[in-house]
């Protein structure tokens, strides 16, 4: 008797139960659960202003980068706020894989050629509070040798930089980055100057709209490591404007060099001199997708 009663109720409830079952909750129960939720797009560009940001060129993408730094604005209208004297760097970056990108560049300053390797070590996620990227830059000065002539050998023209880029996107709008840096110069003229320069960088980004952000950057190197007449403070403040495919980065900075060893340790104008140290500058990025993602085809 109980058996029939039970089976009756089981059947009855299974009918009622299924009728009551909600498609919403069914869908919710089967949606893919992400264990690791990554945080992407911490900064807009691959450079904050002078220094590299945690962002790498995307896989299969070639980025063309034009960078300009003008003379200090202090002379006013005479040289049109420094625009008469421009130093440039242009370069190409390419994303080999999702985690490794390479780049080459050429600067007016020192007539230097530079190349870099940038490797993503960790991505920010719900399990990892910040992302970490390792950057290695090598540069060679090809300008006329001004020091002792007998010292002019190939190795003395080389500069190396290693940076550990640690960044975190705190909110949708606000990101911050700290960048412990080691610059190695193979040759220094002043006996008190160090071949190894330790520096620390700080970068900030605050998005003011979907396509615009205010960025700030500061590098500090103790001036005792540097040669005379060089300052260890590099300050930059800028505006990122993204227009789809292009990123314009307009800024004010006291550094004229655009390679790591130049803006860290080779900044001639101390920021405390105000308008006599501050230059207008811009970075212009254009991305071309060379290798398209094949997973996306229709």
């Amino acid at each position: 008797m109980y058996r029939i009663k039970n089976s009756f109720f089981i059947v009855l409830f299974s009918v009622l139960g299924l009728k009551a079952q909600n498609l919403d909750s069914l869908v919710a129960s089967l949606e893919p659960k992400e264990n690791i939720k990554y945080t992407d797009y911490i900064f807009k560009g691959t450079k904050i202003i002078n220094g590299h940001s945690i962002e790498c060129t995307k896989k299969g993408a070639l980025q063309l980068m034009f960078q300009h730094r003008f003379s200090p604005i202090g002379n006013g209208i005479k040289d049109f706020f420094g625009l008469d004297g421009a130093t440039i760097r242009f370069g190409f970056d390419y994303g080999i894989t999702k985690w490794l990108s390479v780049g080459i560049g050429r600067s007016t300053t020192q007539k230097a050629y530079d190349g870099f390797l940038k490797a993503k070590l960790f991505k920010q996620s719900n399990k990892m509070p910040f992302g970490i990227v390792l950057l290695g830059t090598t540069a060679i000065k090809t300008d006329n040798w001004t020091a002792k002539l007998e010292d002019d050998i190939f190795a003395h023209r080389m500069f190396y930089t290693t940076q550990l880029i640690i960044a975190r996107k705190f909110t949708e709008r606000f990101s911050a980055q700290i960048t412990p840096t080691l610059v190695h110069r193979n040759y220094v003229t002043n006996p008190n100057a160090q071949n190894n320069v330790f520096a620390l960088g700080l970068g900030l980004r605050y998005k003011i709209s979907k396509r615009m952000a205010i960025v700030g950057e500061y590098f500090y190197a103790n001036a005792r490591q540097l040669e005379d007449n060089y300052f260890g403070n590099t300050v930059a403040l800028g505006l990122d404007i993204e227009t789809g495919g292009h990123i314009f980065q307009l800024h004010f900075t006291n550094a004229s060099g655009m390679v790591e060893h130049q803006f860290i340790g080779m900044t001639r104008e101390n920021i405390t001199n105000g308008i006599n140290s501050i230059r207008i500058g811009f970075n212009l990025n254009r991305v071309f997708t060379l290798v398209k993602n094949s997973e996306s085809s229709w």
Binding site: L23, Y41, K58, G60, G245, V287, T289, S296
Partner: peptide, 26 residues
Amino acid sequence: GDIMVSIPNKDFVFKRGLMQEHFNEN
């Protein structure tokens, strides 16, 4: 006749990574 569909927006894959960034970000 009920239909329920849920599509995770982050899983749209684009040919160009930059477009994917703009899609998700902007």
